[in-house]
Simulated assay, not measured.
Amino acid sequence: MMRKILQVIIVTVLLVTLPSQAKESLEQSGDVLHLLLPATALASTLIVEDDYQGTWQLVQSGVASRLVVEVLKYSIEKDRPDGSGDDSFPSGHSADTFAAATFINQRYGWQYGVPSFAVASYVAYTRVASDQHHVEDLMAGAAIGILAGWYFTDPYKGISIVPIASSDTYGVYISGRF
């Protein structure tokens, strides 16, 4: 099972690096990864799992995240840094990729979550570097995606590991069925 997830991640990395090198465009590489990370999460649910529980959780996370983003974009008319529109807040790219990364992390563990969060962070970086968003747009989008992923995703193996941080407490919350 874990070998299948690793194979999906390797194929995704290969698919990502080829278009990125061919186009040599920061914004385009972010756009490609914005689509590939959720696609990788979806492929993982279809290849690794015997049922469609993970697929349904991923769809719920993605749809909820995107609905919140679109309502906020419609409600808050914030100009993009390059002046191309007034739908800067929050970043949909960040919300989508962080929802997928959180799904992968919650469902399959940190060994797959860390690379997924790295990809999501790169996508967010490309949005600022290409003058499509301000940093606060990315932070809001990432928070929306992460919250949606946490809310809708159950661990595949029945164990959940969640970092906890507050003003005076740091730790890890571990829960599961034994």
Score class of each variant (00 low, 15 high):
I47Y: 11
M139T: 11
S94R: 01
F89V: 12
N105Q: 13
V63Q: 03
L72H: 07
V59S: 07
V135S: 08
P38F: 04
L138H: 01
T97M: 02
L42A: 14
R107H: 07
V135P: 01
I104R: 01
A148H: 03
W150D: 05
G54K: 06
R107V: 07
K157V: 14
S116H: 06
S61T: 04
W150C: 06
L67Y: 15
G158A: 09
A148W: 00
G145T: 01
S121R: 07
D50E: 10
L37M: 05
L42F: 10
T45E: 09
S116A: 15
W110A: 09
I164H: 11
G158I: 00
W56F: 11
S44F: 05
A39M: 07
Y74N: 14
Q57T: 01
A148S: 12
K157Y: 13
V123E: 03
S75V: 14
R80N: 12
R80K: 09
R107E: 07
G113N: 02
A99P: 02
Q106G: 08
Y156T: 04
S91Y: 14
Y170E: 13
T45G: 10
A143S: 15
V135N: 10
D86H: 14
D79Q: 14
T153K: 05
V162R: 11
Y108G: 00
V68I: 15
D131N: 13
Y74V: 05
D96F: 01
T45C: 12
M139Y: 15
Q53L: 09
Q132A: 10
P90V: 04
A100G: 03
